[in-house]
């Protein structure tokens, strides 16, 4: 293969040089290529990052009358919390994932604790055997009408009746269809929530096609509910903020900027 055979055209003439088969050794070439491949393999990113789009309201003061009030029957409030083990988030030894808890209530906060449904605890479980579990199941049940339509749209897209663009457009329209009963979700990340907890919550909004949601900070009412829940269930939810030093670090970073 690598040798070039040269025909000597029949008879050998006397005194003519004997032609040698030229044999090129490719081993160093392969060595070098392998090195280059290794280099490129180590330096590349094959998977590109994904993004989650988010739109926040302005933080200018909006007068109470101008704020849109959600119907109590549609509102769901999720208070997020991440379990900590000392200084680092607690990890489930089986799955290797951080444990996030969600305390949720529907409608207006029941500060009189008349029913035992004033606060319920859930977790992000996702799907088990293609069936939604945990908080996903609860949100899906709340958004049943939209999800039913969404499933038929998805079916049509999978059967190639509509293109991906059409599907996206229709799904968006479906998610914000005011004729359907849709929940309004208020996500309240508690002081110990990690970024992953927030992303998980936003992700559930995407999965369950919930178009109306907002991110707010927990109020005193929420703390009250959590406190009561703690006592009733013998749990500790409200802990001193684990990462108090974090704010110190940012303050220190800001310090060298001289003030005039």
């Amino acid at each position: 293969m690598a040798q070039i055979e040269q025909k000597d055209g029949g008879k050998k003439k006397k005194g003519a040089q004997k032609k040698m088969a030229i044999h090129v050794d490719f081993t160093p070439m392969v060595d070098m290529n392998m090195l280059l491949i290794t280099f490129f393999m180590l330096c590349t990113t094959m998977i590109k990052s994904q993004t989650l789009q988010i739109v926040l309201p302005t933080n200018e003061d909006v007068r109470k009358e101008q704020q849109s009030q959600a119907k109590a029957s549609e509102a769901v409030t999720l208070i997020l919390d991440t379990e900590y083990n000392g200084d680092t988030p607690k990890v489930d030894p089986e799955t290797g994932k951080t444990i996030h808890n969600i305390y949720y209530y529907e409608g207006v906060a029941d500060t009189l604790f008349q029913t035992n449904k004033y606060l319920r605890k859930e977790q992000f479980i996702g799907n088990v055997n293609h069936e939604p579990q945990g908080i996903r199941k609860i949100l899906r049940d709340k958004n049943k009408q939209v999800m039913e339509e969404y499933q038929t749209l998805k079916e049509r897209w999978k059967n190639k009746e509509i293109t991906k663009e059409e599907f996206d457009k229709l799904a968006k329209k479906n998610a914000s269809d005011s004729l359907k009963t849709r929940p309004v979700v208020v996500i309240k990340p508690g002081p110990n929530t990690t970024y992953e907890g927030l992303i998980n919550a936003l992700d559930e909004m995407n999965i369950n096609q919930i178009s109306r949601y907002s991110i707010e900070l927990p109020t005193h009412t929420d703390t009250l509910l959590l406190k009561h829940f703690e006592q009733a269930n013998n749990e500790t939810i409200i802990r001193p903020t684990v990462r108090q030093t974090a704010s110190k670090a940012t303050a220190a970073a800001a310090a060298p900027a001289p003030q005039q």
């Binding site: 990052s49 994904q50 789009q53 799955t95 479980i125 088990v128 936003l202």
Partner: peptide, 20 residues
């Protein structure tokens, strides 16, 4: 700064993947 629209970088996972 009135830049209310932005994106958060995430890695990809499937809907069926357990979150817990």
């Amino acid at each position: 700064m009135k830049l209310n629209k932005f994106s958060l970088m995430t890695a990809l996972k499937s809907e069926d993947e357990p979150t817990k």
